[in-house]
Design a protein around this nucleic acid. Sequence first.
RNA 1: GGGGGAGUGUCCCGAGUGGCAAAGGGGGCGGACUGUAAAUCCGCUGGCUGACGCCUUCGUAGGUUCGAGUCCUACCUCCCCCA
Length: 416
Amino acid sequence: MSALRSAFMNEFAARGHLHQCTNQDGLDALMMKERVAGYIGFDCTAPSLHIGNLTQIMRLRVLQRAGHKPIVVVGGGTTKVGDPSGKDETRQLLTDAQIEANKLRHMEIYRRFLKFGDGATDAIMVDNAEWLDTLQYIPFLREVGRHFTINRMITMDSVKLRLDREQPLTFLEFNYMIMQSYDFVELFRRYGCRLQMGGSDQWGNIVSGIDLARRTDNVELFGLTSPLITTSSGAKMGKTAAGAVWLSADMLSPYDYWQYWRNVEDADVGRFLRVFTDLPLDEIAQLESLKGAELNDAKKALANEATALCHGRAEAERAAETSRQTFEGAGMSANLPTVDVSHDELAKGIGVLAAFTRAGLTTSNGDARRQVSGGGLRVNDEAVADEKLLLTSAHLREGVVKLSLGKKKHVLLKPV
RNA sequence: GGGGGAGUGUCCCGAGUGGCAAAGGGGGCGGACUGUAAAUCCGCUGGCUGACGCCUUCGUAGGUUCGAGUCCUACCUCCCCCA
């Protein structure tokens, strides 16, 4: 394997995206020679996209930056089948209406991260339902199905995992690989797409598509996979207490998004800066070389850049400022999340336990009670010692009551 | 179609065969220490209640019993073997 020459491959590798490539030298040469259209497929299984999907989107950004053409394939068709890769049980089937609703929300998100349009390097978005929904069973089996052997398919990791674990793999899911393979061929035919990227778990699906294209269209397509991004402590990325780290503001506020990045482990900062921001690599190297507490500056840079990409620069700055006031200043920030209560209610007094539960900081009165005994709840920065405490207008500071769970989670109770 | 096995605290794994709100672990949350980090140590991890206590929970529905996750019956789902 010779040294990489193309701008794309160099940056792709330098940012830690390169895991496996079907023909690295061949792809590198192609990238030098011409503008390449490359795609990544996203299924519409969840109402929003999360950080795990973001790693893929960032790869398309690298592709676009290097002067090539990204294709976002929204899996309106494949979602109806359900990818078994990396799943040890069957996904629940979504209705067509759910898939459609998810798809529309996803499309908004892609538009924030990539430049779409008609230009040569503008990204395009296509829905594989366009060609999958209308497939005829028998003709499809004859044209495409005959190129797949069961012998080979059952050696694929996605299939093997289920068989080895004695978990059911339905025939529906078994077909996913074929759908995805066909997608690649179809994208080549329609858009001249030569490259498919994806997570390392997509290797089998990608290679199948390449094989299929060679047989049906006598053309060499390329596959490029990326390592699964985990935190240095080995956990899958993007999970917080509340769930996934979503890219939609209505599912995870820009402030919480900023906080997620601000709180990554030391060992992850450099890696994450390379993957989740566009900062120049030399700048990242410098940030990464900071020692001890100074690394916090690198984390702030990560939080600022990542949030700006997702929610815009203004929201990123607001989140940074809210965080600064909350954690580094003396006071509190009015921009913290708020929960409304009526004046009347507050005048009569609200039990602390109920107040924290209403603010969403605790899940029930019992949970709140346990937190009190563990010393985890604070009102206006003072620990709650008595679970019978009544919050009243007397607790208002600058018009709000500040409720805190632990050191990091704060909500303002605001009378209206 | 026949035979054998499995489904446990709705985050996951997993012990439990008549007294169970149910062992243990992971994960998560909180506390101490720090740098809004990691590691470590400690506490918590079904709902209601100030508390005694009450309520809901072991695939589903019935039954036996003072009492059932545990026994019986039917059903559902899955796995394995045979056809």
